[in-house]
Each structure stands twice: as structure tokens, then as C-alpha cells.
Design a protein around this nucleic acid. Sequence first.
DNA 1: CGTCTCATTGACACCCTTCAAACGAAGTGG
DNA 2: CCACTTCGTTTGAAGGGTGTCAATGAGACG
Lengths: 232, 232
Amino acid sequence: MHLQSSLAATRTILRDDFKGRSALTDQASGSSADHLGVAGVRMTWRRNEEIFGEGEPATCVYRVLKGVVRTYRILADGRRQIAEFFLPGEVFGLHARAVHQASAEAVTDCEVVAVRRGQLSERAMTDGATAHKLLALTLHQLLRSEEHMLILGRKTASERLAWFLMDMAERIPAPNRVELPMSRQDIADYLGLTIETVSRTMTQLQDDGVIELPTRRQVVLRERQTLMDLAA
Amino acid sequence: MHLQSSLAATRTILRDDFKGRSALTDQASGSSADHLGVAGVRMTWRRNEEIFGEGEPATCVYRVLKGVVRTYRILADGRRQIAEFFLPGEVFGLHARAVHQASAEAVTDCEVVAVRRGQLSERAMTDGATAHKLLALTLHQLLRSEEHMLILGRKTASERLAWFLMDMAERIPAPNRVELPMSRQDIADYLGLTIETVSRTMTQLQDDGVIELPTRRQVVLRERQTLMDLAA
DNA sequence: CGTCTCATTGACACCCTTCAAACGAAGTGG
DNA sequence: CCACTTCGTTTGAAGGGTGTCAATGAGACG
């Protein structure tokens, strides 16, 4: 668990070093952009920077423009569960309470549009279409998290990884080749495994001819059907 | 896995035997009731009866009046993950596209109010308050499922069980005594464990003096703090 | 008192984790 | 351009927590 503890330490450093600064640059670079029919502020975050933390007041809802974001929960001893990765076009920060129940960080350098929750709910109150859209986004997330639960509760390491690869392949439209934006540690924390198991399972899938790993961040899907069967 | 397979078999039998019948009685006993500001139909279901199945058209949103409901997903080989238990007052059936993505069954004999999705979304379109309520319910579910993910991905058997017991204790208001409405198999499938591990862990907690098990369905919380610490 | 279902307990196996070391790619400074 | 460092990843060996298989036990019901 010391790996994750050091990760947490890194995070704290990053927060202290850069957060204030980017908060400024964010404001500076903040050209207005449309998001759910509400004017939003464009913001940029660096790799591993914290976007919001558990317990902070939830002021905004975000949409990813470029890059990838992770949301997660963490235990006192460093055990981390990544709830979701958000790719360009996807919306995160939808939370029930006034206070964030999870943390969000930039997996890669990224650019997002932020919309004030107040403005959004105000608009939703009067505009049925916006309310509907908001509900649809939330339901989509709920749907995904229920599938995620099945993965975490009932699937083996290779099944989890196969599901993950197929899911990424669907979400990043690219024929039989997936560029993974996140580290092995992120994948492990997303799938409820250790980094070693992720690595070993990757190698195993490669040895079986199911996938190919030209570089550490690239995966070639050799036998889609095998992956589909595993992921099912 | 044969235990779960036989469970599946039992379910099929129950579906074939009773579903048609209760569908009739449901209509018969259907007195109108209020739910989310929309008139609903009161329905009753027997223990282990299927309320809706994965893949069926999603016609209704439900609210529990009496009894307990479980929603779950199941794999081809019988592995089952229970997403949530719904207690009196709680709402289920939200998570849906046109077709249900999970199944729902009665854990105990139960009584629910069903509201047509069509009517509900129609009302939500024009009434901001209803839309807001609907969104809040969905966000609450999402919040719970994210915590559930943390449990499934990162916690040990005793931590899972402690969390489960504390959660049930909060939801069923009763001082230091929890009446479990569901079987060990249900608990196992909710927590991503086997029935044997649930049983062993229960016994262990009892041996440690943390809980007491007067009957199989009753749990006395002896050391709430210990449970809280484990569950955290 | 039998039967059925569900729960508990035991013995053993195994998948995944833990601990540890080696490896490799990327960046830095000489 | 090459050592050197650093961080992330891979690989190995060993151990443990949970699963599997099997038998026993305990309520519920007729």
C-alpha cells in the first residue's frame, strides 16, 4: 500500500503547488462555452491535478473537452477505488449533495467546461428539456456504475480486464487499437485489482494472442471475440 | 456455483407459476395511490417473485410501501450481483432506458406503488419540482452505488459486513438491533462474497463480541464503534 | 417426527495480494 | 552522446484471504 500512500503524497504536493496557480490561469483562460444550454467557463488542468476533493462544496458540473478525468473515493489507509474515467464529451461532477462525495483528478492534461450548479438547476426548474437531459446523464452514470458493481463483485481478473479493454475500445473510436490514457495503477484501482495483477493479466492475454502490447499505453485487440466472451 | 444455478432455477419456476396470477391480482387490488405527485397503482408481490426482468420494457417506476425488494444483474453462469435492496419508502426502477438493465425481485412479500414512466416524465417536463425530485432520487442512488463500488473493489469481508450491518441499522430505525429481511445468499451477492464467507464472518464478529446473533435473521449491535471503524 | 430449506462449519485449493527485485523508458546533467 | 536518476512497469516467490466442495446442524412446516 506504500505505492498508493506515495501517490497520495504526490497529490498533496501537486495540490499545494499548482492549484492556486491554475485557478488563476483558469479564470484568465476562461472563455465562455456552451454546456447543457448554460454558459460555462473553460478551464484547464494538468496531469494528476485535483479538480475537486471529497468534502469540498460542490459548485460546478463539468464536461470534458480534451483529456481524461478520474473520479474516486479513498480510504484512510490509501486504498482507492476509481468510480469512473471521463473521456472527451462526457460529463462529471453530478452529485447529490451540496458537498462532493468523491474526488476528481486529471488523468492527463485536460480541458473542461464548468457550469455552476445553481445556474443549471435554475434552468432545469423551468426548462423541461434541460431537466430531462440532466436526468438522462445521471441515469447513464447509474447504469454504468451498476455494471461496474457486477465487475467488481463477481468477475475474475481477466474478465475485468477484458471488459475494461472492450469498454475503452467502444468509447475511444479506433479500429482494434486502444490508446490507454491512464497508468496501470489507475486501471488497477478502477478494476479493484493490484497493479501487479493488471500487469500479469495483460501479459497473459498477450501470451494467449488475444491482445498485443506494442507500447505500454497501446493495446491492439487481436481477438475481439475472445475479449467479448470474457467481458460478457 | 451450483447453489446459484439452483437459485436461478427456482426463480424461473416462481416466475412461471405466479407471475401471471399476480399480474391479475395486482390489477384487481389496484387502488390508486400517490407517488411523486402522480397517481400510481398499488401492487403486491410474493417472496422471490420477479417484479421485472432484465431486457423487459421498462414501463414503471416503483416505490416500496411494505417489504423489501432487490435489484440485481446476473451472468450466464449464475454469478449474481445485487445492486441494491429497497426498503419501505424507497424508490426503484429508475435506472432504465426503454428496457430494464437489471432485474428486480421481492425479497419478502411486499407492496409497492407503480407509476407509469410515461406519465412521470410528462409531468417532469412541465413541473420543475417533480423533475428535481426525480433527479435527486437518481443522484442518491448514484451516490450509494459509488460507495458500493468502494466496498466491492477495496474492502475485506469483515469490513463489507460491518458496513452492511451499519447501513441496515441506519435504514431500519431500531436501536442496536437489526432485523435482516434477506437471506445469507442475498447478503453474499450484495457484498460480492460467498454465503460461506458471510456466515464465517458473522460468526467471527460474534465471537469477538462485536455483534450477537439471537436468531439467524436478527443481529444485535454490541460494539457500534468497532463496527463503525470497520465500515469506515 | 420426517422433510425441506437455509445456515454453519471444516478441510483444502487457488486466485490474487504482498513483498521484493529487476527492467525499461523518459528525462537530466555532465 | 552517454551515465545517471527517476518513475512506472514487469516479473518472481511466497503467503493469505476467500472460494470450493462436502458434511453437519438448525429452524420451519406439514
